[in-house]
Design a protein around this nucleic acid. Structure first.
Lengths: 234, 234
DNA sequence: CGTGTACTTGAGTGGGCTCAAGCAGGGTGG
DNA sequence: CCACCCTGCTTGAGCCCACTCAAGTACACG
C-alpha cells in the first residue's frame, strides 16, 4: 500500500511555497503539522471518492491518475498529476473527495493535513491568492484535456499523439507509459484500439518501449517532433 | 451586436454579492465602476479569445456558449453559462481571454470592468475566498461536462439526454434549445446525428419543440423523468 | 417570389467496438 | 528447475454506430 518515507521539505513544491511565505514547517514538524512523505506502490490509492477530505497531496515523483465516476458507474480519468502538481486543493472547502487518486508506477507524495492547511489559508491573503491561481490553472488543464483528448471528429491516432505529449517527463523524449487500459479510460476508447495504435507507432519508429515490462518505472521513448506533427492532423 | 440596457443592481448575482460585502455600487455607478447592463442578440460575442481581458460578465438572462479553439483550429464548446453564472472570473490574473463567449438567443449580461474588480479582490480576503470557491465550482462543472457528455463507449443518444438535462431552465420541463450545430460542437458529433436523435425523441414524445422557429427564445419541453432514464443507459 | 439559413432524411462508408483466440513474461508452487 | 496460471498485451474477423455526401424541405427575410 503506502510506506512512510524520509522527508526533505525542499522536495515538495507546496512546502517550498509555504516556507517562502514564512510558515515554519521545521519546528516540531512531525507533531504540529502532521506533514509526512509517503511512497505509494503501483495501483494503490492516495484517497478515494466520497471519503472525508483529510489531506491534500503534493506529488514528489511519479504520476497519479485522477478518476471520476460517471452517472452510469463507469470510471473516467479526468486528469493526470505529475511531479510538482498538488492533488485536491480544490477540496479545501468540501467535506468529501470528488475523485479517486491512484498511483501509476511508484509514487512519492507529501501529505499535508487539510485542517492544518485551512488554518493558514484563512489567515493569509497571500496564500489565498496563490491557491486561487492554482485552482485556475487546474481549471484550464481540465478544459484542455477535454477539448484535446476526447472524442469528436478527431481520430484516435491524433488524440493518442496528444496524450503522449501530455505525459512527457519534463522536456526530454521520455514519456510516462500508462497501461493500455488507462489510456483507453483517458481517451474514451477501448484497450484494443489503444494497442493497435501504439503498435503502429512502434512499427513506424515514432515511439519505442523502454524500462521493465512490469508496471512500475516504465516509459516510452518518443520522437517528439513526429508526435507533434501527428497531434495536429485533421 | 450589443445594446446598453436599463440597470438594476439586484438582477446581477455578482453585484448582489458585492453589495452584501459592503461595496458601494450605487454611488456614482456610471462613473466610478463602469458597471453596465447590456443586451446581446443571438450569435453576437461578449468577448473573443486572445483579446485583452477588460471585464467579466455576469449573466442575467439567456445562455452563453463558451468556445475554446483546439490545436488543429477546430472549435469546441467547453461549457455553457446560464442565468447567475459569471463568465471569465478565471481570467482575473490573465492578460488575454482563454475563450470566446457567444450569446445563444437573446442574452442580458452585466459587464464589470476587470480593473475595478481587481481592486476589490486585492483588498478583501472575503472576496478572495468567494472567488476561490466560485472558480472551484467552475472546475467541477468542466470535469462533469467532460466525463458525462464526451465520447467514450457511451452512445450519442444517452449523451443527448444528459445534455438536455444540463440545459434545463431552472427546475421546470423547459430546456434551452441550442442549434443543431451547437449541440454537435458540445458532444463532438455531427449535426446530422444530432438531428436524427432529436427527431427520434420527438417521435417518442420525450421532447417537443416549442417557441418560435427562429433562434432567439426557443425551447424544448421535455419529459424529465424519461430523459433521466435514458441518461443512465449503458 | 426568390434566396439563404437551418434542419431533415436517405444511402453508403468506415473507424472503432465486440468477441475471441493467441502470446509473452513473471510469479507461484511443486 | 519446470509446469502452471494469471495478468497485460496483441492480433484477427465481423459488425454497428456515427460519419460523409447529397438531396430535399421548411421557414424567415429581403
Amino acid at each position: 500500500m503506502r510506506r512512510r518515507a524520509s522527508r526533505d521539505a525542499f522536495d515538495c513544491a507546496l512546502c517550498r511555497e509555504l516556507l517562502d511565505w514564512g510558515v515554519s514547517l521545521e519546528h516540531g514538524a512531525d507533531f504540529d503539522t502532521g506533514i509526512h512523505d509517503y511512497e505509494y506502490e503501483h495501483a494503490s490509492d492516495l484517497y478515494r471518492v466520497a471519503a472525508p477530505v483529510d489531506a491534500v497531496y503534493s506529488i514528489l515523483a511519479g504520476t497519479v491518475k485522477i478518476v471520476k465516476p460517471g452517472p452510469a458507474g463507469e470510471q473516467r480519468i479526468v486528469r493526470v498529476l505529475k511531479t510538482g502538481d498538488v492533488a485536491e486543493i480544490e477540496s479545501i472547502f468540501s467535506d468529501a473527495f470528488e475523485h479517486t487518486a491512484i498511483a501509476v508506477g511508484k509514487v512519492r507524495a507529501c501529505r499535508i493535513p487539510i485542517a492544518w492547511l485551512r488554518k493558514f489559508v484563512a489567515g493569509s491573503g497571500r496564500i489565498q491568492m496563490r491557491l486561487l491561481q492554482k485552482s485556475l490553472t487546474d481549471l484550464r488543464e481540465a478544459e484542455t484535456w477535454l477539448s484535446q483528448l476526447t472524442g469528436g471528429a478527431t481520430p484516435a491516432r491524433t488524440r493518442m499523439a496528444r496524450l503522449m505529449l501530455r505525459l512527457r517527463v519534463d522536456a526530454g523524449d521520455r514519456i510516462h507509459r500508462y497501461s493500455i487500459d488507462d489510456m483507453g479510460d483517458i481517451m474514451g476508447i477501448t484497450p484494443e484500439t489503444v494497442s493497435r495504435i501504439i503498435s503502429e507507432f512502434c512499427r513506424q519508429g515514432i515511439v519505442a518501449r523502454t524500462g521493465s515490462s512490469i508496471a512500475a518505472e516504465r516509459y516510452f521513448r518518443g520522437d517528439i517532433a513526429a508526435l507533434e506533427r501527428i497531434a495536429q492532423e485533421v
